[in-house]
Design a protein around this nucleic acid. Structure first.
Length: 895
RNA sequence: GGGGCGUUAGCUCAGUUGGUUCAGAGCGUUGCAUUCACACUGCAAAGGUCACUGGUUCGAAUCCAGUACGCCCCACCA
């Protein structure tokens, strides 16, 4: 079977992916084999493939393909996350574009729209994953809002509530005025910002000229002030405590109080207290029974309670009030000031601390097994440096705010009595139940009333997305909804998890917590944390900067194999990857040297197959001596590479593994082996020799397959006739075969290769064409190596003759490889130049010898160094002495 | 403010218990090659005080301390 002259990646990749998928190669069902399981970090259902996904999923695919080829029952579970806040925002925007306001819809109507959207677009990212070759078991595709999954989330909520881990409390929360919902602490990103510090003076009540000056970064909250506080030890203000000041502009009198919280050193030493809009102020307010005036609406505009600027945005008001205060003579000064401001991770809106009633998970007890598991390496973090970060977070873990004021997600299964609708929110009774019926039973029992379902009203909020995705590693196997099922027993715990360090706390830590709480076992053994992908300027790739290339465009340009290679090369675990596409993507000049290398590697393989397939075999022709040498060496080389790869995989050094297989194929197989196997012109290769080449080629393709699945399948299929239903991805990777003399044999061949290289360089330096035949004189301690490999030297060096000598014949130039000296006759040699070169070599070796002798003469070294080290030093000494002898003889030979 | 990580060739990175002649790879650069699989190639070459300072050691890119620069995470000082 011959293949086309140029490789059409797009067409072939499409073809092979379909072949794999329709053949059911990705499918995994429990059997007698040992399972190897990965659950995908479910991308947002709204997501589009970005470079982070590309890296992440390429690594997962490499791991899963490798394990599949090692004979494990490999199962990669794909799926998507409902991503409540992101998806809801997207759907709201889409509806708005259609002229539909969310506020005009009922919950059910809105959810209908949202599900319609999900059904239409939710699968896009999964199709994009197919493009990169992801060998997921698509029949297992899950979604965090699948019916059973939804039920599992509700069950967990109720269970944790019954266990006392979940509670409802009025607290200061992180409020996202854009998403109109509460957020957990983890969803708040602190960013340093250049702001201003306003020094504002308040008149002391009952005086005409006495003022108190405070410093604030948020003058708009002055309208919500209910006290001024000073430190009780601060003598400067003692006389004022107990008096009142007048809030500027609105002329409300508020008390001056004393509280330890106030830092005497900061600002003026006086703090304005706004309990509704600052966590610390809220605490102070509680201590001093202060009034709480909420001057902001949920969307960040001023509320009626503010009295002024009602309905205007907080940042607009900040500017306005600053001017108005100035005009009224209340501004003492304004300083530039850097402070950190919380932003919503999803909407990037500036977070408002806001007092509200939310649902919380008490994390302290429940998280303990998860901390232990990582500290004692039951769960391995790779790289291990993340253990520290993890421990710090876990030891200081705070309660998790899990309620979100959204519709897209699992609705909180808490029910209120309609009869209590008039009561203040936090005074209403509630009943938690997996179903309304169960909640109703509880309500009846508690109240003694003959209640009906319509007397209950379900909590309107949904749960944090992460409150569903923390169940992912087991609920994808329906462990909670079908307890004890065979699949969950077989696949759980999973093996490896591959994800970014940015969701270590959001997701990884919580999965471990949930794993122990619900399965009693860790959810995975290893967590491979990838690095961040940065652009050529070292910046994080982000949508906002627009500095991320579209992986699909890259794949169109370089093929999936090329991009997989590119994204993986130089990407150690936990280390950032600086990707090299140009910054200005608007120019459409998509270019990536890294992916180009991948494409080149792929084409190198393809070209090698072109060569091999062009060889027409001749039956019955025996192996030539050169072929024998080459095959023996390449087999050992292959085995050594297989062993090296196994070691790299064991330690999750995926980039190193890729470099190893690339080098073996490109340099060793193509550069040396095929060059040796290449039949002379007008000659045919023997059938036996060709068969050996094909076998070795196949083995290398197998080892390379996890990295570049498409090209390896393409070539593997073309090397021999294959049956329908055969695929390289279903073959078993060749085991490293350890033969006793492998190491020596490989070392010996390295000497031969070095000889070839050195002689080539020598010829190049002397202006001798490499084709020109030479006579080679060899002065060596291991002539057997050169005798055995004579055919190799002949092939690569155009050798006319080789003789062993004790010293260099007259009229020759010399070169040296390790302890072997070579002499090559030169037409007219520059004796002085030769001498100079030799003298330089001699000087170097003398110096080297001196340093070794010094070392060996050092009693402490001899006493402390390991025997193997001493031995190697002795060998170095012997080598250096031998080399010096050769060099001196050569020098003498020159006269 | 607290904690963690990094700094090796022009660029991106390896360097896996301190000890092979340990200073490496790829890209880039510079020569040379060319009907013979591959210019998405081959052959060769140049290129580094291993950030700096001090310490431990017979021996340090590797261990320790400090300095400089860079990055990340955590944190309620207005």
């Amino acid at each position: 079977m011959s293949i086309a002259k140029t490789y059409n990646a797009a067409e072939r990749e499409e073809k092979w992916y379909q072949y794999w998928e329709t053949s059911g190669f990705f499918r995994s069902v429990p059997d007698e084999r040992e399972p190897y399981t990965i659950v995908i970090p479910p991308p947002n259902v709204t997501g589009m493939l970005h470079m982070g996904h590309m890296l992440n999923n390429t690594i997962q695919d490499i791991l899963i393909r490798r394990k599949r080829m090692e004979g494990y029952n490999a199962c990669w579970v794909p799926g998507t996350d409902h991503a409540s806040i992101a998806t809801e925002a997207k759907v709201v925007r889409l509806l708005r574009d259609q002229g539909i306001k969310k506020s005009d819809l009922t919950r059910d109507e809105f959810l209908k729209h949202a599900f319609a959207w999900k059904d239409k677009y939710g699968g896009i990212i999964l199709d994009q994953l197919r493009k990169l070759g992801a060998s997921c078991d698509w029949e297992r595709t899950r979604f965090t809002m699948d019916d059973d999954y939804y039920r599992a989330v509700i069950m967990v909520f109720c269970d944790l509530y019954e266990k006392g881990y979940i509670y409802r409390e009025l607290r200061m929360v992180n409020w996202d005025p854009s998403g109109l919902t509460a957020l957990s602490d983890e969803e708040v990103i602190h960013k340093e910002q250049q702001g201003k510090l306003y020094y504002v003076r308040y008149k002391v009540e009952g005086t005409s000229k006495e003022y108190v000056t405070i410093a604030t970064t948020r003058p708009e909250t002055i309208l919500g002030d209910t006290a001024i506080s000073v430190n009780p030890k601060d003598m400067r203000f003692m006389h004022l405590v107990g008096k009142k000041v007048i809030v500027p502009l609105i002329n409300r009198a508020i008390p001056i109080i004393a509280d330890d919280y106030v830092d005497m050193e900061f600002g003026t030493g006086c703090l304005k207290v706004t309990p509704a809009h600052d966590v610390n102020d809220y605490e102070i307010g509680k201590r001093h029974n202060l009034e709480t005036i909420d001057v902001l609406n949920p969307n960040g505009t001023m509320s009626e309670a503010a009295q002024l600027y009602i309905g205007e945005d907080r940042f607009v008001v900040r500017k306005k009030i600053s001017k108005d205060l100035e005009a009224a003579g209340h501004i003492v000064k304004i300083e530039d000031y850097k402070n950190t401001v919380g932003h919503s991770e999803r909407t990037d809106a500036v977070i408002e601390p806001r007092l509200s009633l939310q649902w919380w998970v008490n994390m302290k007890e429940i998280s303990k097994p998860a901390l232990t598991a990582v500290m004692d390496d039951t769960v391995n973090l790779i790289p291990a440096k993340f253990k520290n970060t993890y421990r710090h977070w876990m030891e200081n873990v705070k309660d998790w705010c899990i309620s979100r004021q959204l519709w897209w997600g699992q609705q909180i299964p808490a029910f209120y009595l309609n009869s209590e609708n008039e009561l203040p929110e936090h005074q209403r009774q509630f009943f938690v139940g997996v179903t309304p019926e169960i909640a109703l039973e509880k309500a009846r029992a508690k109240t003694g009333l003959d209640l009906k379902l319509e007397d209950l009203r379900q909590d309107a909020d949904v749960l944090d997305t992460w409150f569903s995705s923390w169940l992912w590693p087991f609920q994808v196997f329906k462990s909670l909804t079908e307890p004890g099922n065979a699949e969950a027993a077989y696949y759980y715990p999973t093996n490896d998890l591959v994800t970014g360090p940015d969701i270590l706390f959001f997701w990884v830590a919580r999965m471990i917590i949930a794993g122990y709480e619900y399965e009693g076992k860790e959810p995975f053994k290893n967590v491979y944390l990838t690095g961040l992908i940065r652009d050529a300027l070292g910046r994080k790739m982000s949508k906002m900067l627009g500095n991320s290339p579209d992986p699909l465009d890259l794949m169109a340009l370089y093929g999936a194999d090329g991009v997989r290679f590119g994204v993986l090369t130089s990407s150690p675990a936990g280390g950032d990857l600086t990707f090299d596409t140009p910054i200005d993507l608007t120019k459409k000049e998509l270019e990536s040297k890294l992916c180009e290398q991948g494409r080149n590697f792929r084409n190198k393989i393809w070209n090698a197959s072109n060569l091999v397939e062009g060889w027409v075999p001749e039956a019955g022709k025996p192996l030539t001596p050169l072929e024998k040498v080459a095959i023996n060496w390449m087999k050992r080389r292959l085995s050594a590479t297989a062993a090296e790869l196994a070691d790299h995989f064991e330690k999750f050094r995926i980039s190193d593994a890729l470099a190893t297989i690339r080098r073996t194929i490109w340099d060793e197989f193509c550069g040396w082996f095929l060059e040796m196997m290449k039949p002379n012109r007008d000659e045919a290769i023997g059938e036996a020799a060709r068969e050996q080449v094909v076998q070795l080629f196949e083995s290398l393709l197998q080892l390379a397959h996890p990295f570049v699945p498409f090209i390896t399948e393409e070539i593997w299929q073309s090397l021999r006739p294959r049956k329908e239903g055969e695929s390289i991805m279903m073959t078993l990777i060749p085991e490293p075969i350890v033969v006793g003399d492998d190491f020596e044999a490989l070392t010996a061949f390295e000497l031969v290769k070095d000889t070839v290289t050195a002689v080539r360089a020598f010829k190049a330096e002397k202006g001798i064409s490499n084709k020109e035949p030479i006579d080679l004189y060899v002065n060596t301690q291991s002539p057997e190596i050169f005798k055995a490999n004579l055919p190799v030297l002949e092939r690569f060096l155009g050798l006319r003759s080789m003789q062993f000598v004790d010293k260099g014949p007259a009229g020759t130039g010399s070169l040296r490889v390790l302890t072997t000296e070579f002499y090559i006759p030169l037409g007219d040699i520059d004796i002085e130049a030769e001498k100079a070169k030799l003298l330089k070599d001699i000087a170097y070796n003398e110096g080297f010898l001196v340093s070794i002798e010094k070392k060996l003469g050092n009693e402490k070294f001899m006493a402390n160094a390991a025997a193997a080290v001493v031995e190697s030093e002795l060998k170095k000494k012997a080598d250096a002495e031998a080399t010096l002898r050769l060099l001196r003889e050569s020098l003498a030979g020159l006269g």
